[in-house]
Write a protein that binds this DNA or RNA. Structure first.
Lengths: 337, 337
DNA sequence: ACTTGGCACTCGGGAACACAGAGTGCCAGA
DNA sequence: TCTGGCACTCTGTGTTCCCGAGTGCCAAGT
């Protein structure tokens, strides 16, 4: 049904269209790629490909353009992820190595991805829920007011100001801190609620109201921040790629954290890369845009995801290579720090 | 030289052009605003205004359009800042009040400004250098590795992982922490370097190498973060305002932190509002865009700045009102938390 | 000294039109 | 099954033309 040559033709069409941004015709095809046949033959193949929905023509008597289905086939079976050049790898390493805290790691990753792929980069902060407690700190700020600081093993720091129901002496705060750290150290965040359940009972009765208040804020922090944080950048690249339509929609989607998270979401197939092409993605404003995403994490578990977003007409092999490489390096950095 | 009627004409031109986005001619002017004179008279006035560079015509036989100089005059002398409606004020208050930490305050402020003005909003994080130390925390992470956490009175939290030259027992860390907090509590960040200079001497000799390492990282933190942090949003509004040219440039400028800071920078005249119109601003890519900015702070001192960025063709009175109001409310929130 | 109506002039933008060029589908022959 | 040829169909571009909004200027009016 789709013999080898037809597949080759499809591949050629995708490659040409991606690089020229113009519908590609039969003649141009045989000129550029040396398929050993004549334009007429190609036309027949094209007719077949169109029949089956892999390509389409914007109007009669124009060249062909890949459909989403065509890109899908290309990505799945006709292309290979293109590894980065040595220079690029080194650039990534040195650029990321300079980061000094989590915020900066994320920011730099965004820039890196945007620059490497010339698209919009999106990076999710390492998930709170899957990481574990490294330290809890309680800092007295004023009477009846403390700041609660939670440090995770991924370097993420959460802070909350807590208003207390009553005064509490500094040494009692210290005690509470010690108890908390003793039972929470290394504890997976998802297991924190059970773990702290009996903490009040282990304290002198007069400390319990304060402890309960602080604990409730702590739990709140975990729940609230379940909605993850996201950073993005490289929007200038959107303007460059003369986005046929909906630049507005894309920008809107980018500012809608919830949408973004869903787009990155759902881990996918081979080598951890997810590619969602045009109408495959669940947000109507993003018809015409594809997302290439990958999970990253320190060690074995996936902590969060990152990826890029660009026109369906993008260079998938290169983009996928860049995303995969960056995801790996970020994972290493996180594991090392 | 510029009698009252000419000024009225200029005002009318600005207002009409802002609302219609089309060059405004003499006839349209007399129709809409009831100046009590004929089109011919207006034409003479317009000629005078053009002569002096306040307006210009895109081409012969088109209406007039304000120049940057014209907008400047309009902002300085022909318009009044338009206060927000009661509903808007309440919306601001409730929206900002829900914020739970500094990050969220900033994020919400960005959204608020963007929504209120329908432009791109830019918010600078409260400056580190002008705030003061509320607490320093040293958290042991592993042997020879601690995390240094600095909490400022504006709620900003800075963290750094520090690799130590040698092992150090927890109680000695606690001692160092106590000493640091004792001398730094409430200390303005700019005075930290002098203040900590003699700390090593006050410690037992065996702790000094560690203390020196930690202090150097602390000082580094202060210096590095002198480059301030910035958040922005509402870029979708850019696409809506059919930006004549340079949407790309604008997006690039937005991602260039340094440029952004310079744009917000320099506090200005009346009521703390700075308006920079088109070519007045120091970045060539932003010809065609204006910036309305204001300082905000808890109490008397200006901690940082916020503002919006949009086409020179913007509704200045409304925008200025919104920026001023948001700046005030954010100040209140910061002071209160 | 301003203001006004009249008038000739200018120029951009849209509509109508023609045309070249790229591309297609199909068919008959190798 | 491939190929060359041929007729056909579009889009995009350039040309021309014309309308209308808007101007500048002048002479007359208040």
């Amino acid at each position: 049904m789709l013999d080898d040559r037809k597949l080759a033709v499809l591949r050629a069409i995708v490659e040409d269209y991606v690089s020229t941004n113009e519908p590609v015709g039969s003649k141009a095809l045989v000129d550029r790629h040396n398929l050993g046949v004549s334009p007429a033959t190609i036309r027949n193949d094209m007719a077949a490909l169109e029949e089956q929905g892999y390509i389409t023509q914007p109007h009669t008597s124009a060249g062909r353009v890949p459909t989403d289905k065509g890109y899908r086939l290309f990505v799945d079976r006709l292309s290979q992820i293109k590894p980065l050049s040595g220079a690029e790898r080194r650039a990534i390493e040195t650029f990321l190595a300079g980061a000094v805290d989590l915020d900066e790691i994320v920011m730099r990753t965004v820039r890196l991805l945007a620059q490497l792929t010339r698209q919009v980069a999106v990076v999710q902060y390492p998930s709170l829920t899957r990481s574990s407690v490294r330290h809890v700190e309680i800092v007295p700020l004023a009477e009846r007011r403390v700041m609660l600081v939670l440090i995770t093993n991924t370097g993420r720091v959460e802070q909350r100001v807590v208003d207390l129901p009553e005064d509490i002496a500094d040494d009692r705060v210290a005690n509470l801190r010690a108890v908390l750290n003793a039972c929470l150290d290394g504890c997976g965040l998802s297991r924190v609620p059970e773990t702290v359940a009996d903490v009040p009972e282990r304290l002198p009765p007069e400390d319990r109201p304060v402890a309960v208040t602080i604990l409730s804020v702590l739990l709140e922090t975990l729940v609230e921040r379940h909605e993850e944080k996201i950073a993005f950048g490289g929007t200038a690249n959107l303007a460059a790629a003369d986005f046929s339509i909906g630049l507005r929609d894309v920008l809107e989607a980018l500012e809608e954290q919830v949408v973004l998270i869903r787009l990155l979401g759902e881990t996918g197939g081979l080598s951890g890369l997810t590619v969602r092409i045009g109408s495959e993605n669940p947000y109507s404003g993003l018809r015409g845009t594809s997302i290439v995403a990958a999970g990253y994490g320190a060690g074995d578990r996936e902590l969060a995801r990152l990826g890029v977003l660009g026109p369906t007409r993008m260079d998938y092999p290169v983009t996928m290579g860049a995303v995969r490489a960056v995801a790996r390096y970020v994972g290493q950095i996180l594991a090392g720090s």
